[in-house]
Design a protein around this nucleic acid. Structure first.
Lengths: 241, 241
DNA sequence: GTGTCAATTGTGGAATTCCACAATAGGAAG
DNA sequence: CTTCCTATTGTGGAATTCCACAATTGACAC
């Protein structure tokens, strides 16, 4: 019981010291086995309908399973992955499957997974309740039945592993030039559906002024269009809706 | 030592059962005091330069401090809050202050906070490493010196509290109509700076087809302009950049 | 088999944005 | 005090988007 707390704490401390994804994966994999999980998948979420594979950060899933997942575009048919997109709390695969109506394809996916040693699992969405960014999914060869403490320790393990993994994986994060207050102000109105002229009226300046600010914003964000600039400003958190 | 684990687990279990923000805040506040923290602040992050106050989800900060924070627009001068925007891991205020150059205003904020009983604290960014969504900040009247276990238990407490708080607070989350594959495809190209004509070429359809899809997207997302639609599609996670 | 919905294409004109070139004024920093 | 940056406004024309009105094809569901 208390042992798992130590296992988790020790893993988290080691986490910081791993400087390669490989080492981290190995350590995480070993740690998770102590909790009864043989495989894990750590991935960001693709936009709807998109191919999920490029978003994978790290995993130890059997290659065979990964191939099938890709070929069959399982991501968009698997109720478990669908669950990941909406849930902000931890959930077991069992829960996810019960919560969704049974379709042919869902049943097929579940039985195929089971035959490859991924019978049940638990998913930890990363991010807050308003927007899930990534998911760490753990697979076991039998139904998941964790006590509360183990579950939360696992959550902590996955949380820290993901943080570290993204740090390692994603060192080259997109950095855009900083906009001025005025530029952000203009962009924000545009992002909210106003035309340049509207913004001009709202801010009591000429339409031209608005357009020049937008032009500067486009240049700074290296954007081809104002829409492009808005998208980039949004993801770089320089504006909000 | 092991007691704090129980305290944390018990709190997390109670969390689910709280149905009002008030009850949650009270419980959280009491729980945090057992860890030596007298006040907390749970907030989402404003866009650069924006007023931070509307983004507060819940807090127990002294009113006097909150007023000063607002009046002086401290959020944008306080190295601690600046830290929240970039860090994805837990950090103490002390760490944040050391990591940034000392300015007059920063020193003033720190000493004012200290005189009101917020001498040091710890911040837990919520969200993954690539995008911080919210922060839970805990304040203590003396320098923070937590052992690893306590720190991680606190992290778990804050994580679950925030989840629940957002669930309660944000029941009326913006829901937009689902776009079709094609609509998303078009929007994605537009979000990436392409003109309708470019998209038409890329997808081997007529410019008009692209525009009709965009029109439908605008209608579904209730957006006045395509830019508006892109912004909404982005925040509702229907497209990615 | 009928109905609903997605995807596709078209026309023509109004509305809007984008761009190259220029210039003035004020504030902050060195 | 000089320099850099930001905010502001202007012109005119090219490029692009937006809109109202219409219609065909194919897929999936009841």
């Amino acid at each position: 019981m208390g042992q798992l707390v130590d296992v988790a704490m020790n893993f988290i401390e080691r986490c910081e010291r791993h400087s390669t994804l490989q080492a981290l994966v190995q350590d995480l994999s070993a740690t998770l086995k102590l909790f009864g999980f043989n495989y894990f998948m750590m991935t960001r979420l693709p936009a709807l309908g998109e191919d999920a594979e490029p978003y994978i950060i790290a995993h130890t899933w059997p290659n065979e399973w990964l191939v099938r997942y890709r070929e069959g575009k399982y991501f968009w048919h698997d109720p478990v992955s669908a669950f990941s997109l909406t849930r902000s709390r931890a959930f077991t695969w069992g829960e996810a499957r019960i919560g969704s109506r049974r379709t042919r394809i869902a049943g097929k996916i579940a039985s195929e997974a089971s035959s490859l040693g991924l019978a049940d699992g638990i998913g930890f969405p990363m991010g807050d309740a308003s927007s899930v960014q990534a998911v760490v999914s753990l697979a076991a060869d039998r139904p998941v039945d964790l006590d509360t403490l183990s579950r939360h320790m696992l959550h902590l393990v996955c949380l820290n592993a993901e943080m570290r993994a993204v740090e390692i994986y994603d060192k080259a994060s997109k950095v855009f030039a900083a906009l001025t207050d005025r530029e952000r102000e203009m962009l924000r109105w545009i992002a909210n559906g106003k035309a340049s002229e509207d913004v001009a009226d709202i801010l009591k300046v000429s339409r031209r002024t608005v357009e020049v600010h937008l032009q500067h914003a486009r240049q700074k964000l290296n954007a081809a269009t104002t829409t492009h600039a808005v998208a980039r400003a949004l993801i770089s958190r320089q504006i909000k809706l």
